[in-house]
């Protein structure tokens, strides 16, 4: 069986670029390694630098299916792994009539009554799969334990059915905003990638590829202002998502050059806190008109 993933870091960079994700060397190399070593990939970084997008891009570039598990506080096994469809089971029992209990019992714990949730779905899929576990830092510690079993062996034990093993190991991408320290056990099993704000050259390319209507010169100006904003001590530094939004806004307004007035008008797209806003105006020497 040939590996469905990338052939080399250069191949990864090229194919990710072809689907609109401009990866740097470290990202491309790590994405390649995740496929080659069949290890889960833990992606950390500030909000809006394209952590989730990386998983989606890998799926697009390799033609694999994407299964997504969005984590939140209170996520449990029944939502993440599997659940028995007990309503259907009840119906089955009622419909059984005078069938022997043993037979009914065997009947109601079959695939037909199993509701698979993302983790089990990803493991049972026979096609190449990218499993995205988004914002894993939001879950409780118990779910981490659950993930541990799945990430190391790619198998799930269902008491009534037996152990389900992965037909084909999915490529797992976990994303985290580092609001909570993940356990060392999870981190040890994963490849670690920190995505930071890109350098201005790459960011300009990203803006241009995401918003093709924007002019080259305007994109350059925009990226320069954004990088100056990042050097300030802000509560929330603008990320790539904000740069792209800004470019879209400017295109929609038909702004040709990014002068002081244009910045002052549209700064709200980039900075989402009032104190940041004031600070930026002060530091960039802009006056609100």
């Amino acid at each position: 069986m040939t590996s469905p993933w990338f052939e080399s870091p250069a191949d990864a960079e090229k194919r990710l670029g072809a689907v609109g994700y401009l990866a740097d060397t470290a990202t491309a190399t790590t994405a390649y390694l995740a496929g080659a070593l069949e290890k889960p990939l833990l992606v950390e970084g500030p909000a809006g630098v394209g952590k989730t997008e990386l998983a989606k891009a890998v799926a697009r570039a390799t033609g694999a299916g994407l299964v997504r598990l969005q984590c939140y506080e209170g996520l449990d096994e029944a939502r993440a792994l599997y659940e028995w469809n007990y309503k259907k089971q009840l119906l089955r029992i009622q419909a059984a009539g005078d069938q022997a209990w043993d037979e009914t019992h065997d009947d109601i714990f079959t695939d037909e009554f199993l509701l698979t949730r993302p983790l089990l779905t990803a493991i049972r899929r026979e096609e190449p799969t990218v499993l995205l576990i988004d914002e894993v830092d939001k879950t409780d510690v118990e779910v981490e334990g659950l993930l541990l079993e799945i990430l190391s062996d790619f198998q799930v034990t269902i008491p009534e059915l037996g152990t389900v093993e992965a037909v084909r190991r999915p490529l797992v991408v976990l994303t985290s905003n580092a609001t909570r320290e993940l356990s060392e056990a999870i981190k040890r099993r994963c490849l670690f990638l920190h995505i930071d704000y890109p350098d201005s050259e790459r960011e300009r390319e990203i803006v241009l590829s995401q918003v093709p209507e924007v002019e080259d010169e305007l994109a350059g100006q925009l990226v320069e202002v954004v990088s100056r904003l990042r050097a300030l001590d802000l509560r929330k530094s603008p990320s790539i998502a904000e740069s792209v939004d800004w470019a879209r806004t400017l295109v929609a307004l038909g702004t040709g050059t990014l002068d002081e007035a244009a910045i002052a008008q549209t700064l709200g797209v980039v900075l989402k806190h009032h104190s940041d806003h004031e600070r930026a105006l002060k530091e960039l020497k802009l006056r609100t008109r």
Binding site: T29, Y32, A36, L37, E181, F192, H194
Partner: peptide, 26 residues
């Protein structure tokens, strides 16, 4: 294993391989 998969052609690739496998926090 990562280095084996990547080869030793380039220094930055080696750095990426080491950082991906050895680091656990930024």
């Amino acid at each position: 294993r990562a280095i084996e998969a990547l080869g030793l052609h380039e220094r930055e690739t080696l750095r990426a391989a080491y950082s991906a496998t050895l680091l656990t926090r930024q």
